[in-house]
Amino acid sequence: MRPYIEQLKNVFKQEITYRADSLLNMISGILFLLVQIYIWRALMGATGQVSTSAGVIDTRDMATYVVISSVISVLLSTTIFEIIDDRIRTGQIAMDILKPVNFQALMFSTTIGTVLRRSFSELLPVLLIGIIFFHIKFPSLENFLFFLIAVSCSVLINFFITYGIALFAFWYPAPSWHWSRLYRDLMRFLSGSLIPLWFFPSILVQLSQFLPFKHIFFTTISIYLGRVDRGEIVLILLQQIFWIVSLYGLAELIWRQGIRKLVIQGG
């Protein structure tokens, strides 16, 4: 455990040195939050509410949805895609596997280091603005605890997908950022991070059943909002665990194949 905690601390300290970066991220995070909230207000019009497949939603629900979605966005921050892509292409990965540590665990602690750092500069401001200016709703204690578990699962699902995609670099001579971009955009859309699945046409709702994305944002936020009952919560958590295990296995498989290629072909 100790090497990974040390790694986490180093990432935290390293990210602290990027002050301008944090400040700009904070400002753009707040701006994006305001833009979304006012768009939803405008869309909902004078009545301030709209009926959906999940019942009546009012502007306060939507403000809460947007704020919690922004909070989760920060919790999904990770720099591992760039790190891994760069390390594989430059051959630096050889130095990493020459150490008696687990690379995946090292990357996970890197992610947690980043998340902790950004929680201060980006998560807190958004949450405070949400509470003070938009009076966001609070969940019951029980739902809040379930939400914490679900959100941890979101982080893991996002981590394993990002990690797996980053490993494509083993087979890909050019920078593979477009893969990560494709994933991020697709995930943003299908996960309900911008538009809740309540407003999706049924075909997209059907499609999202077979993908892990909605468990990163939509279902997690639904738990926070109390839009799902106890039984549904358990089902969501089980599905999240299913995705974590599958994606972990897949990422591990890609890693092994990648390393096999590296040690046989020399990268």
Binding site: R2, E6, N10, T17, Y18, M95, L98, K99
Partner: peptide
């Protein structure tokens, strides 16, 4: 292992932090 063309040090934080990570990795 030292490859003269590569570094395993952390770029943006004090050198001592790279050493303490090394210390934990190799126990």
């Amino acid at each position: 292992v030292v490859f003269g063309q590569r570094t395993s040090l952390w770029w943006d934080i004090p050198l001592s932090e790279s050493f303490s990570l090394q210390r934990q990795i190799y126990r």
